[in-house]
Amino acid sequence: MSKYNLDYLDELEAEAIHILREVAGQFEKPALLFSGGKDSITLVRLAEKAFRPGKFPFPLVHIDTGHNFEETITYRDKMIERIGEKLIVGSVQDSIDQGKVVEQKGKNASRNSLQTVTLLDTIAANGFDACIGGARRDEEKARAKERIFSVRDEFGQWDPKRQRPELWNIYNGKIHKGENVRVFPISNWTELDVWNYIRRENIELPSIYFAHERDVITRNGQLMAASPFLNMDEDDIVEHKKVRFRTVGDMSCTAAVESDADQLDDIIAEISESKISERGARMDDKVSEAAMEDRKKGGYF
């Protein structure tokens, strides 16, 4: 009798599909949070594998800061057209216009933290009971401790001390009215796993992931794309560099890295060699050692 063995990408994929189908089976009104980044693009691919030839049992939800890379929005709209699924957009600009949040001031102003309010409002307005997200445990040490089914109270808060035990591959999605569950099907994937999967599956990505020429300025030792969304002053020197982005977020808080990697293979080689972690290019995590823990407690993705 010959032994069989799942390759690690097959195993991670099978686990993620299992989780997505559990969401479909356990919840009344789930949604898939789509940022336009590679992790949520991977989730879309996994959802195709879980539910085709049927429709997705959930819409995609994009929390739009209004400070997007144009390439992300182009990609998003093209992808929605291809997969023929429903997209719901929650707009941070609307939250600002409604006076629910106030735009940050000063040089390091960003709309990243404002997203939480828009996200919670969008969840409430649509009555979502489960939101699928692309967070991974290797990203950050608070995330390393979060469950795959992570229950949030009606204020969207995560309570790390009251997490439910999560045993075997049995996921308890029971919640009270008003609560919702954040579900992370690719919790056990690393950044490199995602890239290897994208290569294996031949998944198209927004062009900003690949090396390109761009005007940038240096802020706190990091390269930021020069854009109308960045509060710039005379100290800021605009330089033209060949860069790429390792994550896709709000333009005002997503830093670029200098790179010549314009092909997937080059990116994978670069990451394998890399000496800086992915979230190291996110200024929003740099504020304090417990930055992510605090944002998650407040209802962040």
Partner: peptide
């Protein structure tokens, strides 16, 4: 991982 763990120097949850 968690702030409480760093403060107390112990592991509370699975990482």
């Amino acid at each position: 991982g968690l702030r409480a763990e760093r403060e107390q120097g112990i592991t509370i949850d699975v990482a």
